[in-house]
Lab assay of single mutants.
Amino acid sequence: MDALKSAGRALIRSPSLAKQSWGGGGRHRKLPENWTDTRETLLEGMLFSLKYLGMTLVEQPKGEELSAAAIKRIVATAKASGKKLQKVTLKVSPRGIILTDNLTNQLIENVSIYRISYCTADKMHDKVFAYIAQSQHNQSLECHAFLCTKRKMAQAVTLTVAQAFKVAFEFWQVSKEEKEKRDKASQEGGDVLGARQDCTPPLKSLVATGNLLDLEETAKAPLSTVSANTTNMDEVPRPQALSGSSVVWELDDGLDEAFSRLAQSRTNPQVLDTGLTAQDMHYAQCLSPVDWDKPDSSGTEQDDLFSF
Rank of each mutant, 00 (worst) to 15 (best):
P94N: 02
L53M: 03
I71H: 01
T160K: 05
N105G: 04
N138K: 15
Y114Q: 02
A241E: 04
W22Y: 11
E142C: 09
N102D: 14
F129M: 07
R39G: 04
K51G: 00
T267D: 04
A3K: 06
V161F: 05
A162Q: 13
K166N: 06
S205M: 10
V161L: 10
A80T: 15
S243R: 12
V58H: 00
S186A: 09
L193E: 13
E188W: 01
I12E: 12
A121N: 05
S260R: 14
A168C: 09
L17P: 13
L17Y: 09
L31M: 14
L11W: 05
D234N: 05
T200A: 11
K51H: 01
H28E: 10
S224P: 12
E177R: 13
S227V: 10
L276G: 10
N34V: 13
F259G: 03
S298H: 08
D37R: 08
L213V: 12
S16V: 07
E177L: 14
T149Y: 09
L50K: 01
L251K: 08
V167L: 12
L272D: 03
D280H: 05
S307N: 13
K152H: 03
P295N: 04
Q60L: 12
R261G: 05
N34E: 10
Q279F: 02
K294N: 12
L99G: 06
W292K: 04
S81F: 06
A10I: 06
F169W: 04
N102K: 01
S260A: 04
G63E: 07
D37V: 08
D253L: 04
G189D: 02
D122G: 01
Y118W: 05
R151Y: 06
L141K: 13
K83V: 14
V92A: 15
Q139I: 08
R182Q: 13
M55Q: 13
Y52Q: 01
K127D: 00
K204S: 07
E301H: 08
Q285K: 06
M233E: 05
V248T: 11
S186D: 02
D234V: 10
D252T: 09
L107D: 02
L85V: 03
Q270D: 12
C148A: 04
P239Q: 10
D256Y: 03
K30A: 10
S205H: 14
R95S: 05
A154P: 02
A278R: 09
T77P: 09
A78G: 07
L242D: 03
Q302K: 07
G194T: 11
T274D: 12
Q187G: 04
R13L: 15
E180R: 15
A154F: 00
A219H: 13
C143V: 08
T41F: 08
R115A: 04
R151V: 13
D280S: 06
A208Q: 07
L57C: 06
Q285E: 06
L90E: 00
R13K: 07
A284H: 13
F306S: 08
R29G: 13
T38M: 11
A284K: 10
G54V: 03
Q86G: 08
E250H: 07
K166T: 15
I132R: 00
T200P: 13
L272S: 02
P295R: 08
L272V: 09
Q60R: 14
R266G: 12
A3V: 11
T267G: 05
V174T: 01
T89A: 13
Q270I: 04
N232Y: 04
A208H: 06
Y114H: 12
D293K: 05
A263L: 11
T200K: 10
N211M: 07
P94V: 04
C286F: 05
A18Q: 08
A185F: 14
G54E: 00
T225Q: 14
V75H: 00
L159A: 12
S135D: 14
A69M: 12
L141G: 03
V128D: 01
P32A: 15
S243P: 12
Q20K: 15
L11V: 12
L53V: 00
L17T: 12
R266L: 03
W249C: 07
Q139P: 12
T77D: 14
T225C: 04
V174S: 04
M55A: 01
S112W: 13
Q106W: 14
I108M: 02
Q264W: 05
P201M: 11
V128L: 00
E64Q: 09
A284Y: 11
Q155I: 13
S67C: 14
T41D: 14
H144A: 07
P222H: 10
V226Y: 08
L305P: 08
K51Y: 00
S297E: 10
Q285A: 13
E44C: 06
T209A: 14
A164L: 10
T267M: 04
G194S: 05
F259D: 02
K5W: 09
K79M: 04
R27E: 10
G275F: 04
E40K: 13
A10G: 14
S246E: 07
V248K: 07
Y283P: 11
K84S: 15
T218P: 11
I12Q: 13
Q139N: 15
